[in-house]
Design a protein around this nucleic acid. Structure first.
Lengths: 117, 117
DNA sequence: CCGGATCCAGTACGATACTG
DNA sequence: CAGTATCGTACTGGATCCGG
């Protein structure tokens, strides 16, 4: 018997990914075009953004809409499922922001004790 | 100007990791020894569990306590910081559980449309 | 402007074997 | 029991070039 099925871990891996979190978090601000999204999600690379958006689209969290213009424009937005995930993602992002200093301090303490060997 | 500092992304990477989430989530049940933790966190490998616990300990989320027995026992538990993170992690875990089916369905739909090319 | 394709260094991860 | 060490494979993620 497997405590956590493969599928669960797989989806966790999708959802518990820093770029996914960041992307969804920023898309929470509204519908954005690729280049604008990239600018706001610095320092994500273009490749990772493309890749992350594909994965999120594939799993139904993000809607990709190509506008029939020249040059073509592509808009990204959250699906209803994506918005429901946003509320969870926000909690993680907020925690990170609020506890950044403490986590960093703990790490420095840990590393210092180590180097004292 | 960098929208998200390197440190923030680094901590996000720590915190937005499937094994970290899972480990903290399970440690939420209480203090556990290594082997018991491993059993409950299936299908995590022993190596990944060790590694994840080190990282979590280093960043102040987990407390490692070696008992002076023979054979040695090691207990892991959440620090106060870890418990504060648990509430955020739980939200992600709960979302995953509740939306597993829908995400999986979206993926199958997406893949089917793709293969119809 | 919005990406895809390719190359490559580095890392994740599992399997296995060994230690105090 | 609770790890550490090593190996091999697969994937990550940046850099760069290319194309509609």
């Amino acid at each position: 018997m497997e405590a956590y099925p493969k599928l669960t871990i797989e989806i966790m891996g999708l959802v518990a990914d820093k770029w996914s979190l960041l992307t969804v978090y920023i898309l929470g601000e509204g519908t954005l075009r690729f280049s604008e999204l990239r600018r706001r999600a610095v320092p994500i690379s273009q490749k990772m953004l493309t890749q992350t958006l594909r994965v999120l689209e594939r799993h139904g969290l993000v809607v990709r809409r190509v506008l029939p213009t020249a040059p073509p424009q592509v808009e990204y937005s959250l699906s209803p499922l994506g918005r429901s995930f946003l509320s969870a993602a926000s909690v993680i992002c907020a925690w990170t922001r609020d506890n950044l200093a403490e986590v960093d301090a703990a790490r420095q303490r840990f590393d210092q004790e180590r180097s004292a060997a």
